[in-house]
Lab assay of single mutants.
Amino acid sequence: HNLTITQGKLFFHYNPKLCLSEIHKMEEVSGTKGRQERNDIALKTNGDQASCENELLKFSYIRTSFDKILLRWEPYWPPDFRDLLGFMLFYKEAPYQNVTEFDGQDACGSNSWTVVDIDPPLRSNDPKSQNHPGWLMRGLKPWTQYAIFVKTLVTFSDERRTYGAKSDIIYVQTDATNPSVPLDPISVSNSSSQIILKWKPPSDPNGNITHYLVFWERQAEDSELFELDYCLKGLKLPSRTWSPPFESEDSQKHNQSEYEDSAGECCSCPKTDSQILKELEESSFRKTFEDYLHNVVFVPRKTSSGTGAEDPRPSRKRRSLGDVGNVTVAVPTVAAFPNTSSTSVPTSPEEHRPFEKVVNKESLVISGLRHFTGYRIELQACNQDTPEERCSVAAYVSARTMPEAKADDIVGPVTHEIFENNVVHLMWQEPKEPNGLIVLYEVSYRRYGDEELHLCVSRKHFALERGCRLRGLSPGNYSVRIRATSLAGNGSWTEPTYFYVTDYLDVPSNIA
């Protein structure tokens, strides 16, 4: 807008934040220059609390790290170098490059900038070799853009010569660093050979998330399962459950009422301010606690030095998902009996873990797994792929695949051998790939016309006998059925096997 004052003059007093240069501009645009008398524009009460600059400061050096910015700028000295009290560095987070010096300023003089007072450097006698002032900004957020400017702080001049310097606002972004852990990993099994893994992005990506790394490792069953005799009275049979499938998407929606109208769909109840505040506090606490764990609990591995020492970490090797089922080394339970199943799973520490690289999504279907087997899954978020990966501390989750139908069934015939004193040795093959492992066998036998009897055969007993022995049988026709019990439950009964026990007292003698 054009402003013209045809008559009258300007009068400025007691404006401590208004620089004289701005008042002189007002004289020019209003056409009143030359009308004012000496005392109409006070030299001592206008701009006496402001830094009124008329020179431009330029930054000469900028260096960044993930949490620091090192700045240096060209030296500046007023005509009387004693008038320079120091520099004021202003900075704040700036997602967009549209910041002005006066953003967030209120009537009390406060604003949204963080201000650092910096002492002037030592003055050199040689004007050509003056030290460049600077400042190291610490405690910054990774991968965050900051708006920065600097200006001088000078003393009051009796001659009211307006001098000083100020830089333009520059924008500097800190470097990326390792992201925080992925949030809320959930693993479920939808079949006997697959596990579905879902997660949420890290709360602090500290860069642009480029991919996720998912490692999985087959877990050995508890050692007590191999040692305890679950045929003993009072000892509860062990059981394991597989990871249940995901709930429906509708039930997972946030901010939804727990109660549904019987007449149909209901609208979600909005969260109160107290609920939102509580969630923010919980989120802040979780982030602080995660940072504490990362800094205190997890110790970084030592990389190899120039002395030739090897990095103890196993090298990563990509495998196809079809090879995942046989990740671990199978060892027989008892070496003397080769027909026992290889369900003991000690994992070799030198073995390469299978892994998958996930790009542009937060889910993965891990296939080719062994049925009813526990897996430990390790999830890392990465925001750099080359020249070397920059990934987060791992988040861990466990899951067990679903049982395989008929995996616990005894394959092959049940054979028998009759000894003296009416002892019958029953023999059968253990299931080759049971659900988890076989903890015991149930032997059901009966003599024709009598009630059915049951015998429990422990895992250890089966390994020693290759089956079991029935003792003290009365003469007669017998039928026997056997079924295995694994961590997933009972298998199917075998087809009945028949044998006849004679009275050993009636056996004919070869003595003449």
Rank of each mutant, 00 (worst) to 15 (best):
S203A: 13
S203E: 11
S203V: 10
P205F: 15
G207A: 02
G207R: 06
N208R: 06
N208W: 11
I209L: 10
V214N: 02
F215E: 03
W216F: 12
R218T: 13
E221A: 01
D222C: 13
S223Q: 10
L225C: 05
L225K: 06
E227T: 07
E227L: 11
E227Q: 09
E227W: 09
E227M: 14
D229A: 12
D229Q: 06
C231N: 03
C231F: 03
C231L: 02
L232W: 08
G234R: 11
G234V: 13
G234M: 10
K236L: 12
L237I: 05
P238M: 08
S239W: 13
T241L: 05
T241F: 11
T241P: 06
S243N: 13
S243R: 10
S243P: 12
P244Q: 12
P244Y: 14
P245D: 13
F246V: 06
E247W: 08
E247C: 08
E247H: 08
E247V: 12
E249K: 14
E249I: 06
E249A: 14
D250W: 10
D250V: 06
S251L: 13
S251H: 15
Q252R: 08
H254L: 13
N255G: 13
N255S: 08
Q256W: 09
Q256I: 14
Q256K: 11
E258M: 11
Y259K: 13
E260Y: 10
G264P: 06
E265H: 08
C267E: 14
C267L: 03
C267G: 04
C269I: 12
C269M: 06
K271G: 06
T272A: 12
T272F: 06
D273E: 11
D273F: 13
Q275E: 09
L277F: 12
L277T: 07
L277S: 02
K278L: 08
E279S: 08
L280T: 14
E282A: 14
E282W: 15
E282S: 08
S283T: 06
S284L: 06
F285D: 10
F285K: 14
R286V: 11
R286P: 09
K287Y: 12
K287E: 15
T288P: 07
F289M: 08
E290L: 13
E290G: 15
E290M: 11
Y292A: 05
Y292Q: 02
Y292D: 07
N295L: 04
V296L: 07
V296S: 13
F298Q: 15
V299S: 13
V299I: 12
V299R: 15
P300M: 15
P300N: 06
R301L: 08
K302Q: 12
T303C: 08
T303D: 15
T303P: 13
S305F: 10
S305G: 10
S305Y: 06
G306E: 11
G306Q: 14
G308L: 10
E310S: 12
E310N: 04
E310P: 11
D311M: 09
P314R: 15
S315G: 14
R318H: 14
R318Q: 06
S320M: 05
S320W: 05
S320D: 11
L321R: 12
G322L: 11
G322Y: 06
G322Q: 05
G322S: 09
D323E: 11
V327A: 12
V327T: 08
T328L: 09
T328C: 05
V329P: 06
V329S: 10
P332K: 07
V334I: 15
V334E: 04
A335F: 09
A335S: 09
A336H: 13
F337D: 07
T340S: 13
T340G: 06
S341M: 11
S341T: 07
S342K: 03
T343I: 08
T343Y: 13
S344A: 06
V345H: 08
V345Q: 14
T347K: 07
P349D: 15
E350L: 11
H352C: 12
R353T: 04
P354W: 08
F355Y: 08
F355R: 06
E356H: 13
K357S: 14
K357V: 14
K357E: 10
V358R: 05
V358L: 08
V358A: 03
V359T: 11
V359Q: 14
N360K: 10
K361W: 06
V365I: 01
I366Y: 01
G368H: 04
L369Y: 00
R370E: 15
H371F: 12
F372G: 05
T373I: 04
T373R: 04
T373K: 06
T373L: 05
G374P: 09
G374D: 10
Y375L: 04
R376E: 05
I377R: 00
I377G: 04
E378H: 13
A381I: 04
Q384E: 06
P387I: 05
P387G: 12
E389Y: 13
R390C: 11
S392K: 04
V393I: 06
A394P: 07
A394C: 10
A394W: 12
A394L: 09
A395G: 14
A395Y: 11
Y396S: 12
Y396C: 09
Y396I: 07
V397P: 05
V397W: 05
S398L: 12
A399L: 11
A399K: 13
R400Y: 07
R400D: 04
M402K: 15
M402F: 11
E404H: 13
A405K: 14
K406M: 09
A407W: 08
A407K: 07
A407T: 12
A407S: 09
D408I: 00
D408W: 01
I410R: 02
V411S: 10
P413H: 14
V414S: 01
V414P: 07
T415P: 02
E417T: 12
E417N: 04
E417R: 13
F419S: 09
F419V: 05
E420Q: 08
N421K: 12
N421F: 04
N421W: 08
V423Y: 08
V424L: 11
H425C: 05
L426R: 01
M427I: 11
M427D: 04
M427L: 07
Q429C: 14
P431M: 02
K432P: 13
K432A: 12
E433W: 10
E433Q: 07
P434K: 04
P434E: 02
P434I: 04
N435Y: 01
L437N: 12
I438N: 03
V439M: 04
V439R: 06
V439E: 07
V439L: 10
L440H: 13
Y441N: 01
Y441Q: 01
Y441V: 02
Y441I: 00
E442K: 10
S444T: 11
Y445L: 15
R447A: 07
R447P: 11
Y448H: 09
Y448G: 00
Y448V: 06
D450S: 14
E452F: 13
L453V: 07
H454G: 15
H454D: 15
H454T: 09
C456N: 01
V457T: 08
S458P: 05
S458Q: 06
S458L: 09
K460C: 12
K460I: 11
H461Y: 11
H461K: 09
F462T: 03
F462V: 05
L464N: 15
E465R: 04
E465D: 06
E465C: 07
E465P: 01
E465I: 08
R466A: 07
G467V: 05
G467K: 07
C468E: 01
C468R: 02
C468Q: 06
C468N: 01
C468G: 03
R471K: 12
P475I: 08
G476F: 00
G476M: 00
N477L: 06
N477M: 07
Y478R: 00
Y478P: 01
Y478G: 00
Y478T: 01
S479H: 03
S479Q: 04
S479K: 02
S479D: 02
V480S: 02
V480A: 06
V480H: 00
I482H: 01
R483A: 04
R483K: 13
A484E: 04
A484P: 11
T485C: 15
T485M: 10
T485W: 09
S486A: 09
S486V: 01
S486C: 01
L487E: 04
L487Q: 06
L487G: 02
L487M: 08
G489R: 10
S492Y: 03
S492N: 03
P496Y: 15
T497C: 15
Y498W: 08
Y498C: 08
Y500C: 15
D503R: 13
D503S: 10
D503K: 07
Y504E: 15
Y504W: 10
Y504I: 12
L505F: 12
D506I: 12
V507Q: 15
P508I: 03
N510Q: 08
